[in-house]
Design a protein around this nucleic acid. Sequence first.
DNA 1: GGGCCGATGTATCGGACCGATACATCGCTA
DNA 2: TAGCGATGTATCGGTCCGATACATCGGCCC
Lengths: 185, 185
Amino acid sequence: MLDLAILGLLHESPMHGYELRKQLAVKLGAIKAAISYGSLYPTLRRLQTAGWITEAGETPADDAAVPPLTSRRGRVVYKITAEGKERFQDLLDRVGPEAYEDSAFGVHFAFFARTAVDVRLRILEGRRRKIEERREGFREVLARAAERLDAYTLELQKHGLEAADREVRWLEELIANERKNNKEG
Amino acid sequence: MLDLAILGLLHESPMHGYELRKQLAVKLGAIKAAISYGSLYPTLRRLQTAGWITEAGETPADDAAVPPLTSRRGRVVYKITAEGKERFQDLLDRVGPEAYEDSAFGVHFAFFARTAVDVRLRILEGRRRKIEERREGFREVLARAAERLDAYTLELQKHGLEAADREVRWLEELIANERKNNKEG
DNA sequence: GGGCCGATGTATCGGACCGATACATCGCTA
DNA sequence: TAGCGATGTATCGGTCCGATACATCGGCCC
């Protein structure tokens, strides 16, 4: 998941870790909290080892005269490689059922602008189906067992039902739009 | 987090792992997906080692005549201990900022029926503050950088804003209710 | 001038939690 | 009677988080 997000951002422009995290927090803000450094830096190293990104060395030392006693560790700027771009497209296209899960869906959606139309539709419809099932779960609980639940659990179920319902409608809209643009374009 | 959820459920009645997971899926359905066995069973063992739960042995072998060749491993029913109940109350009462986070908030809320009024209010207000901040974030992005975002990212931000807005209003309602009942009761 | 603080920046470690997998039993139905 | 889906316990590898550490830089107040 992080792989996709990081490759996607670096695809737009080279960046160092800190910046990456901030941009990610904005881009995925609606979906999940900012990712932690405990995930980010190890992942960056892994991506680098895999050859999908490289260090692009921030303005390489024109102040080499400065004694390296306090080994001045500056920012590390990463950029995506050609292999990285391939890998990115691969991750975008090869969508399994995971793509409908809460976290993965958000990341995929965030890069829809770079995703093929049919893949977009497949993801949106899969997601819709999933949320519909979730909604059905809430309905059943509320219909069959409402009297056995305490007030707060009940409230949580109702809130969940409402949220699911709204997400389904949101997805319907997006799907309709996608289909329309698909025909017109 | 799991500790709280499991102790809470076992506080209501003894249960075995599988059942625990199902009940949890219902109780927390609005918040998070069902917890995995890879989390559940290790946690059960941990809670048992800590002395907070014990095995309550499903109707202890009145069929001891059956040869134990196929070491018939039946269901393992767990029940909460006195120490476990103390621990549960402790977890309910000692609320730090984690309790406002997405996952933790849901679990805390699910056991509000067993939570003191002032603690309930503190959690609800903390949560509201947190979501208000999130909402503010969306507003700022939309106001300051909308033209620089692609259509999908924009859509995600708008959806996030709306969801945050609705959650704040939901929390307002709950808080108002809590205050009213507090005075009346 | 000097000290402090918050933002910027890289990095690690332990632990929480998940997804896949394995394996066994039970009751139903084809 | 064979197969299948639900029930049930359990482990393993891997992803990701939260806390923590440490260093620099700019601005602010005294």
